[in-house]
Simulated assay, not measured.
Amino acid sequence: MLDLRFVPATADDVPEVLAVLDRAAARLSAAGIRQWPERFAAEAGGDRTLVSRYELAL
Results as ranks from 00 to 15, higher is better:
M1A: 07
M1K: 08
M1F: 03
L2N: 08
L2I: 04
D3K: 04
L4D: 09
L4M: 13
L4F: 15
L4W: 09
L4E: 13
R5T: 12
R5C: 13
R5Q: 14
V7K: 13
V7M: 12
V7E: 12
P8N: 12
P8F: 08
P8M: 10
A9P: 02
A9D: 00
A9C: 13
T10K: 08
A11M: 04
D12M: 06
D12C: 03
D12L: 10
D13M: 04
D13W: 13
D13V: 05
D13N: 02
V14H: 00
E16R: 11
E16T: 10
E16I: 03
E16G: 12
V17N: 01
V17C: 08
V17P: 00
V17W: 12
L18V: 14
L18S: 03
A19Q: 10
A19M: 02
A19K: 04
V20M: 14
V20D: 15
V20G: 04
L21F: 09
L21H: 07
L21W: 14
D22W: 07
D22L: 03
D22Q: 03
D22M: 03
D22T: 06
R23Q: 11
R23S: 10
R23L: 12
A25C: 13
A25N: 09
A25S: 15
A26N: 04
A26M: 03
A26F: 08
R27M: 07
L28C: 01
L28K: 01
L28N: 01
S29H: 12
S29V: 09
S29F: 03
A30W: 11
A30C: 05
A30S: 11
A31W: 05
A31E: 13
I33A: 00
I33L: 04
I33F: 02
R34P: 00
R34G: 01
R34T: 15
R34C: 01
R34H: 11
Q35T: 00
Q35P: 00
Q35M: 09
W36Q: 02
W36S: 00
P37G: 02
P37M: 07
P37A: 05
P37H: 06
E38H: 09
E38A: 13
E38F: 08
E38N: 07
E38M: 04
R39Q: 13
R39N: 11
R39H: 15
F40T: 02
F40E: 01
F40H: 09
F40Q: 02
A41G: 04
A41R: 10
A42V: 07
A42Y: 01
A42D: 04
E43Q: 12
E43I: 07
E43H: 07
A44V: 06
A44I: 06
G45Q: 06
G45D: 08
G46F: 13
G46L: 08
D47Y: 03
D47I: 12
D47Q: 08
R48M: 05
R48Q: 11
T49N: 02
T49W: 15
L50D: 07
L50W: 14
L50Y: 15
S52E: 15
S52A: 13
S52V: 02
R53P: 00
R53W: 11
R53C: 08
Y54I: 06
E55K: 07
E55L: 12
E55Q: 10
L56E: 00
L56C: 01
A57M: 15
A57K: 09
L58Y: 07
L58N: 03
L58C: 07
L58P: 00
